[in-house]
């Protein structure tokens, strides 16, 4: 009788334990994913393929003419898909905003620069962003924009 009660209580206990463990592992995975994407906010702005440079010296800004032609999915596919799926883009906010996706035909009268996107199913998303200075070499101006990462979950 005692052994039966012991086994039942132990099974209930183990049930609760594994439920908490599963929740904890899932939470940990989401935190790791968010953390890696926060690091990604910093590393994307430092990518030499899109960063501004004057006479070989790097500057803290994003060259929009480089952004227009660079396709990160050809070089950085593994870098982006290492921990979780995401959608990455740059958006210009100030001073003048002409809504629209930037292509070679619409540039510079546009404000949305698609950067990377995975075709994944998701139920929710967490948006993280950081301010960036967008450089327009045609008129040598700097405009306020944001690098946005939509973390798909």
């Amino acid at each position: 009788m005692v052994a039966l009660v012991f086994i039942i209580v132990l099974m209930v206990g183990l049930g609760f334990f594994f439920k908490f463990q599963m929740g904890s592992v899932q939470e940990k995975a989401e935190t790791t994913c968010l953390l890696s994407n926060t690091v990604m906010l910093s590393s994307i702005t430092s990518m030499p393929e899109i960063q501004c440079s004057v006479n070989g010296n790097r500057e803290d800004c994003i060259d929009t003419s480089k952004l227009l032609v660079f396709d990160p999915s050809r070089v950085y596919q593994e870098f982006f898909n290492a921990n979780c799926d995401q959608k990455v883009y740059f958006v210009e906010l100030y001073p003048e905003v002409t809504n629209g996706t930037c292509t070679q035909g619409t540039y510079p009268d546009c404000n949305y620069y698609y950067f990377f996107e995975t075709n994944a199913d998701y139920t929710s998303k967490v948006i993280i962003s950081t301010p960036v200075s967008l450089y327009y070499p045609l008129d040598e101006s700097y405009k306020f924009g944001k690098l946005v990462i939509e973390v798909l979950q």
Partner: peptide, 25 residues
């Protein structure tokens, strides 16, 4: 851990925003 992530993101945001302010045409 999640609070630490938020603070790291905010720190990066302050630093980048000051850089944007400095460069804005």
């Amino acid at each position: 851990d999640s609070d630490l992530t938020g603070e790291a993101e905010l720190n990066l945001e302050v630093s980048n925003l000051l850089n944007v302010i400095k460069k804005q045409t």
